Computed example of a mutant assay.
Amino acid sequence: MRDDHRLQTVADLPDPRSTLTRTNWATLHHAYGPATDAPEILTALLDADQGVRTKALDNLFGILHHQGTIYEATVPTAQYVAAILPDPRTRLSANKTHRSFPGCIRADLLAWLGSVADSITDAVDEVGQRLGFPLDDHPPAVAAREIRPLLLSAVLPYVDDSDRSVREGAIAACIPLLDDVRLLHHRATLVPLVRQILGTSELWQHRERAIDALDAWGESSAGLEGQRNPFLFCDTDLSPDSTPWPSAASNAEGWTEDPPF
């Protein structure tokens, strides 16, 4: 039995190959039913072909964590994604569009982990409780909340990465993970990075996230500039067949100066 008093660390992450082969995916569900296709999706994230990687990222966001939903298959997927972050192949890229998250696949994977963490914060739970759907009544959400220390230990090494987009993605992913009461002590260390890196990002979404986090943590956000008028943007440049779901290297919020709508 796991010692509940010992926080999970990156050493506790299952080997990604083990997650693929030992998880009974057929008994788990994602947005479109049994997650029998999950191993293929996850393996394709590291494929040598850029088009294959791009499609895999689309499926990661659109099937295994569709519109921010935590499914049964989301938790083992999160463990797999966290475990492959050190793989050199995550330095490869995916096809980009005007709505894509900038940078290599590692930045996309960090954004995905951040999106999972965003879906299980106390604020989300508060809204759910008001509507009669607390997170505690949703076993996949409970399981996802339980592994937040594990995910944080996988994300933290990248908050000072040499790649700016990876660094920003890691810091942004840490913020919702630090909503966990077991991890609150990490906030003090992260504050300077939130202010100096995320708060000066070229992406207004990251700047807004920095301001919101600092304000929520009781820290000063003075001097940081968010998006002056996000309503200036519209979707008139989208083609008739454009999907409303963000493209492969983006998360549910979108990650360019254009908004995700």
Results as ranks from 00 to 15, higher is better:
Lys96Asp: 10
Leu151Ser: 01
Ala248Tyr: 04
Val10Lys: 14
Gly103Tyr: 09
Ser115His: 12
Trp204His: 13
Val116Thr: 07
Gly218Asp: 08
Leu42Tyr: 03
Asn59Lys: 12
Pro244Phe: 08
Asp235Thr: 11
Arg99Leu: 11
Ala213Phe: 03
Asp180Asn: 02
Ala78Lys: 02
Val194Tyr: 00
Pro157Val: 01
Asp87His: 12
Leu151Lys: 02
Ser250His: 05
Gly103Asn: 15
Asp125Ile: 10
Pro192Ser: 09
Gln196Val: 13
Ala170Met: 05
Glu208Val: 03
Pro259Arg: 15
Phe133Cys: 14
Gly226Ile: 02
Ile147Cys: 02
Phe61Ala: 15
Pro176His: 01
Ala213Glu: 04
Pro102Arg: 11
Asp160Ala: 09
Asp15Glu: 12
Leu135His: 02
Ser201His: 05
Asp58Gly: 06
Asn229Ala: 12
Ser115Asn: 15
Asp58Thr: 09
Val159Gly: 04
Pro39Cys: 09
Leu224Glu: 05
Thr200Ile: 02
Pro246Cys: 06
Arg187Cys: 10
Leu190Arg: 03
Pro230Ser: 14
Ile70Asn: 05
Glu202Ala: 14
Ile84Arg: 05
Phe61Met: 12
Trp112Phe: 13
Ala213Trp: 09
Pro102Ser: 12
Thr90Cys: 04
Phe101Pro: 13
Trp112Leu: 14
Arg207Val: 06
Ala222Asn: 07
Asp118Pro: 06
Pro246Gln: 06
Val155Ser: 07
Ile63Cys: 12
Leu131Ser: 08
Thr77Pro: 11
Ala73Val: 07
Gly51Asn: 11
Leu135Asn: 09
Ile171Ala: 05
Ser153Pro: 00
Leu42His: 04
Asp235Lys: 04
Gly33Pro: 01
Trp112Gly: 13
Arg145Gly: 04
Ser247Met: 11
Arg99Lys: 15
Thr9Cys: 00
Gly169Asp: 11
Asp161His: 00
Leu85Ser: 10
Val159Lys: 08
Ser250Trp: 06
Leu190Thr: 02
Asp179Phe: 14
Ala78Gln: 04
Pro244Tyr: 10
Pro88Ala: 03
Asn24Trp: 14
Ala248Gly: 03
Glu126Lys: 12
Ala11Gln: 08
Leu232Tyr: 11
Arg130Phe: 09
Pro157Arg: 00
